[in-house]
Each structure stands twice: as structure tokens, then as C-alpha cells.
Design a protein around this nucleic acid. Structure first.
Length: 586
RNA sequence: GCCCCCGUAGCUCAGUUGGAUAGAGCAAUCGCCUCCUAAGCGAUAGGUCGGACGUUCGAAUCGUCUCGGGGGCACCA
């Protein structure tokens, strides 16, 4: 609809350009927007005010000429000039009536489009370190990234969802060592667990599985493990040096193969858990991309070589630095440490280089807001590599605060309050969690009200919207019970009976759905869809209370049934795009 | 100190990319079930869009400054 109006205005502009009323060299694409006020019709354009200056005439006069030059259209009943020079378009009733059979025919495809022209977009999200179960903070990135990906897919992009697995580096060694130490405890060795080790229950579980399967194969005495190890923090030492020494000891005592075994077991265990957790959240990926594979495949070396050959690297204090300040970063960054190991940043350069090599038209990274300082250096690296940094979009997601009984739930690994995504899902359910997480703009701090998410009342937007869907289903069931024939007639038959204001408003809302999906996708703003779904549900509930659907008058009943079938379809499409189910009864 | 995000009704937030008289939901007050699910609906009240200056036909929206809140500034990931 919108694009049709846009065409009409464009044609009128061409017409005025050819007779010299406006300069032909600067014809913009006219901006068409939904009228806010019903009295202003359905769509409005400000084009006359925009062009008044170059056309050297008053906005309203220009608007007059545009309306006169506008081609006839069966969709438009009339167009008016109003206010300082707006052109308001009033659509014909037929236009809205035709919408109903269109929605029914397209079904789940209504609202989808090919706007993206199958361009390839990669969305990388969550990518939490596989050192433990997903945190409630990761949940927002998961819900947000998944919804943005689904939205982009809905408007015709070819979407590739990816999870970057940080399976290399010190944190993973700490994990493997933590598991091994817990295993030793299970073998009745007594010692103080390092303050910097991973202390969660899941570490015990993994350790126990090793014990169960392999007995004491991996056992070494506590004396051997802790001999000459630098003291931990509680003993007046340094916790970092302490854990590093323990890692080194684990590697030497276990030797390569056995250390590897525990390392891999811990990694795969946790990764399986994360995968399972996300799947239960309706979040799936095309690929889990291993950081280690970047080293193994030589991508990291290749990236460093490319930077070196373009003279963006230099040695200082034993380390290899990337001159990111050449591209606006605050300071230069180390890519290879003094000890010869590549930094996390080096892997990330390789990863993003590789993303570009894979030919994505656009790359979206969803990060926690605390990583924002990281953006300039990654963009700098892409630029230094000769790639186009504007292809990379980094979306920062602010943290979510949980509230229970009106009080903020303190979240630290220590506190007893729940912290995992799995626990959140168990408490409030998948639907509420998915919806609440994307209800706000991503850069907005999110107050997640657990009590509200669980409440079965109209205060809860998820239930409210789902209930509207269930209500339509319920009405149809009632009709069946009463043996009322509700098989809808084809086409636009009887839709002219929908003359009430609530019905008009619903038709308008239904017609807006594709525009909402497109805007939500292009702006990476799922919350727009949340608001829309809530509004549509609200309009339906109002209608429900104001009018009976299963009326005696068969033609009127048919019109209304067709309308609420369409409402049901759009509610379902919208909810599903948000990863929320559309139940048939509640 | 430098950088990023946020200040809109008592609370939580929208605001169609600069448009017409700033909107929802809670909470408050008053109503609506012999009738398709009251898990619902209607009505009333509530505002100097943090502040100042600027940009133009027009600013909650853009720019500069300022005040308040949050976050970030590793040879960690």
C-alpha cells in the first residue's frame, strides 16, 4: 500500500518536473507515512513542504499541483491538502476489504517480503565463553540476536546465524584445570581450591563423570600437584600466578594427551549444555565457529601477515602491535604477546577477516554493551585489511536487571539468587522470556519484572496478546458447538458489512503489519513488533467486548468471522516472529 | 581525564528517522459478566519532553554547551 502511494507521488513529481514546475535534477523519493490521526486519512506526505523552497512557491500551492498531477488509482478514494501543506490520502473501502482475502491466502507468509533480495547477512550473537552455563545476561543477547535474525529473514535476507566459540585461551585452561582439581577431590585428595578457579556445581558434575568412567586414571597426589606452586591470594600470594602455575602443573603431570582429554571433555560438556539451553529457548545456529580453528586453519597467521605486509604492525617491548590509532582507535593494540601467544584480538581480526571472505553483504555482531570500546579496533582491523568496515554493524545490548517482589535481584556468581538462563526459562517460561527480553530497545537498560512475566493477567503483555489469539480460536470453537456455519465465503464478499469503527481500526492495523515487520527488521528493533502485537491484541479485545461475532445475520457474521480469522493469522505471525507461541486455548 | 548509552505522566516505556493537538501500559478514581473465556472492556485524572542556546516553514527528534544516571577505557576473554 505504502509503496503504491509512493509510486503515485513519484509519477506526479515526474509530471511537474517535465513541465518545469520543479527542478528535474533533484527529485527525491517521496516520504510517505502513516497518518497519525484518522482525520488525516490513511497516509500523508510532506513532499510539498520539502520541495517548496526549490520550487519557489508556497507549500500548499505546490501540493495543489501535485494532487492535480497525480494519476488515478483505484486504491485511493480521495486526497486532500491540509495543514501547512500535507497531502493526505484516503484509501477506498475496497482497498481494505481486499486485504482480508490477501491475508488468508498468504497465511503465515503475510508480512514477509523479498526486500532483502536474498542478500547474505551474518548475525553473530551470544558467543559466550564456554566456561559455564549461560547467564541471564546472555539471555537478552540470545533473544535479541535471534529475533533480529528472524526478522531479517522474514524480509528476504539470507541469514546465517553463528556462535563464536572461545575454545582457546587461558579461560579454557582454567576451566580444564578446575575440572581436574574437582576430580582429584573426588579421588579423596585434600587441598584448597584456587580462588580463581571455576566453582560452579557443573564443574563437580563433569569431574564426577570422569571419575565414574575412568576411575583414578587421572589421579595425582595433592602433594605432587601443589609442590612449589606459588601461593594463592588467601595465603598472601597472587591468585593469577597461582592458577597459571596450577595450569602448567596440570599440563606437565597429565601430559599432552590426558590434559587434552579433560580439556575437550569439559568444553564439549558445557557446549552441549549451552546448545541445549539455547535450543530450548528457540535459538538455533547455522554454525558454531571455533576460535581454535582459526589458528589451526592458519587464518590468524594469514591475517597477521596481511597486516604486516601493509605496514600496520610493529614490535615494541617484545610484543607485536597493530597500529589501530591510524584508524581512529584510542591506542594501538597488541596482537601477539611477549610470550609469543596471539591475543584474543588477533583471533577476532582473523574471524572478521574470514567473515568478509565468506562473502556476506552484511555482518552483524551482537555484543554486550560493556564491549563497546572494542568496536573501533575491530573496524580498524577491517579497514587495514582493505575490507569495508561499514559492512560490519555492531549492536550493543545493555544488561538486564531482574526484579522480584519489586526488588532488584542481586546477581553475582556468589549470591544464591538464580543466574542462569535455564532457571529463568523454568521460572517464567520460554514465551514470556523471549518477549520480555526484546520488549525494549537494545541500548536501553531492561528491567525484567519476574512477577509480571509470570502473571496471568492483562498486565502481562505476553498473556494479553496470546489470549487475543486464543479468544479468536475460542469463538470459532463455540460456533462449532452451536452448529453455526462459519466457513468463510471467498473474496471480499460481505466485508462491506464491516462498518463499525472498531472494525475499521482493525483493518488499518492489519494493513500496517508488513510495514512494521520491515521497519523492525531494518532498524534491528524487535520492540516495534512487540508494541504492534500488543496494540493489535488490544484492538481485538475492544472489538470483542463491543460486538458479537456469532450473530443471526449470516452476511454480517460472515464478514466478522473473516475479519477475526485475519486478526488471528496476523497475531500468530507476529508472535511467532518473536519466538513466542500462539496457543489455541488458555 | 577520554569514549559510549540513557533522561518523555507517580512507575515502566513508545513516539513511524524533522511534521499536524506528545501517546500506551501499570498504579489511582468510577463503571461493565442472565450475553462468543472478566486471563477482558469503557471512562476520568495525570506533562515546562532534565536545562540553555542554536539550525528552519516546523524540534521530544538534529548541533553545541550544561546538569543528573549507567557503562567502558588490559600483552583478560
Amino acid at each position: 500500500m505504502k509503496s503504491h502511494i509512493q509510486d503515485l507521488v513519484s509519477q506526479a513529481l515526474q509530471q511537474l518536473a517535465s513541465d518545469g514546475t520543479i527542478p528535474a535534477d533533484a527529485i527525491p523519493t517521496p516520504m510517505i507515512e502513516r497518518a497519525r490521526d484518522r482525520q488525516h486519512g490513511d497516509f500523508a506526505s510532506n513532499i510539498a513542504m520539502v520541495l517548496a523552497k526549490v520550487a519557489r512557491c508556497r507549500p500548499r500551492d505546490l501540493a495543489e499541483k501535485l494532487v492535480a498531477a497525480m494519476p488515478e488509482s483505484s486504491l485511493v478514494a480521495k486526497s486532500e491538502i491540509a495543514g501547512p501543506g500535507f497531502i493526505n490520502f484516503f484509501l477506498s473501502d475496497d482497498t481494505y476489504h481486499a486485504l482480508i482475502p490477501e491475508i488468508m491466502q498468504q497465511g503465515h507468509a503475510y508480512g514477509r517480503s523479498n526486500h532483502g533480495e536474498n542478500k547474505k547477512v551474518q548475525v553473530e550473537f551470544v558467543s559466550a565463553n564456554p566456561t559455564g552455563p549461560l547467564h541471564v545476561g546472555h539471555g537478552r543477547g540470545a533473544a535479541y540476536g535471534a529475533t533480529v535474525a528472524d526478522l531479517l529473514e522474514a524480509i528476504g535476507f539470507e541469514v546465517h546465524r553463528e556462535y563464536y566459540v572461545n575454545d582457546a585461551g587461558r579461560q579454557m585452561d582454567i576451566l580444564a584445570t578446575s575440572v581436574w582439581l574437582r576430580y582429584l577431590s573426588l579421588c579423596d585428595e585434600a587441598f584448597a581450591f584456587p580462588i580463581n578457579g571455576y566453582k560452579g556445581d557443573y564443574i563437580w558434575e563433569i569431574a564426577a563423570s570422569i571419575k565414574q568412567e575412568h576411575g583414578e586414571t587421572y589421579k595425582h597426589s595433592a602433594e605432587a600437584v601443589f609442590a612449589d606452586i606459588t601461593a594463592d591470594e588467601p595465603d598472601g600470594g597472587d591468585k593469577e600466578l597461582h592458577i597459571d602455575a596450577l595450569i602448567a602443573r596440570a599440563k606437565s603431570l597429565l601430559e599432552e594427551n590426558r590434559y587434552r582429554y579433560i580439556f575437550e571433555l569439559a568444553l564439549n560438556n558445557i557446549l552441549d549444555d549451552i546448545r541445549d539451553d539455547l535450543a530450548g529457548f528457540g535459538v538455533t545456529y547455522q554454525r558454531w565457529y571455533s576460535e581454535r580453528s582459526l589458528t589451526d586453519s592458519g587464518a590468524v597467521n594469514r591475517a597477521i601477515e596481511r597486516l604486516r605486509s601493509s605496514n600496520y604492525l610493529y614490535k615494541k617491548e617484545g610484543a607485536l602491535w597493530f597500529r589501530s590509532t591510524d584508524f581512529g582507535d584510542e591506542k594501538d593494540r597488541v596482537v601477539v604477546r611477549e610470550n609469543g601467544q596471539g591475543t584474543y584480538f588477533a583471533s577476532d581480526i582473523a574471524y572478521h577477516m574470514e567473515k568478509m571472505e565468506r562473502g556476506f553483504d552484511r555482518v552483524i555482531d551482537v555484543w554486550g554493551a560493556d564491549h563497546h570500546g572494542y568496536i573501533p579496533r575491530v573496524k580498524a582491523a577491517l579497514e587495514a585489511l582493505g575490507d569495508d568496515p561499514s559492512k560490519l554493524d555492531v549492536l550493543l545490548v545493555q544488561f538486564a536487571n531482574l526484579y522480584r517482589d519489586g526488588k532488584k535481584v542481586q546477581m553475582s556468581t556468589r549470591s544464591g539468587s538464580f543466574v542462569t538462563l535455564r532457571e529463568l526459562r523454568q521460572e517464567v517460561g520460554r514465551d514470556a522470556a523471549r518477549f520480555f527480553y526484546v520488549m525494549r530497545k537494545c541500548e536501553q537498560h531492561l528491567d525484567f519484572d519476574l512477577d509480571l512475566a509470570k502473571s496471568e493477567s492483562n498486565d502481562n503483555p505476553v498473556y494479553y496478546a496470546q489470549y487475543a489469539h486464543a479468544r479468536v480460536c475460542s469463538v470459532l470453537r463455540q460456533a462449532g458447538d452451536k452448529s453455526i456455519d462459519i466457513t468463510p465465503t471467498p473474496g471480499i464478499e460481505n466485508l462491506d458489512r464491516l462498518t463499525e469503527s472498531h472494525e475499521q481500526l482493525l483493518l488499518i492495523s492489519l494493513s500496517r503489519y508488513p510495514e512494521i515487520v520491515e521497519a523492525a527488521a531494518l532498524n534491528e528493533e524487535p520492540h516495534q513488533l512487540c508494541h504492534y502485537v500488543r496494540e493489535l491484541a488490544s484492538e481485538f479485545h475492544t472489538y470483542y467486548n463491543a460486538s458479537h461475532f456469532l450473530v443471526e445475520d449470516a452476511a454480517l457474521r460472515d464478514g466478522r468471522i473473516k475479519l477475526i480469522l485475519a486478526v488471528r493469522q496476523v497475531l500468530k505471525n507476529g508472535l511467532n516472529l518473536l519466538g513466542v507461541s500462539a496457543p489455541e486455548s488458555m
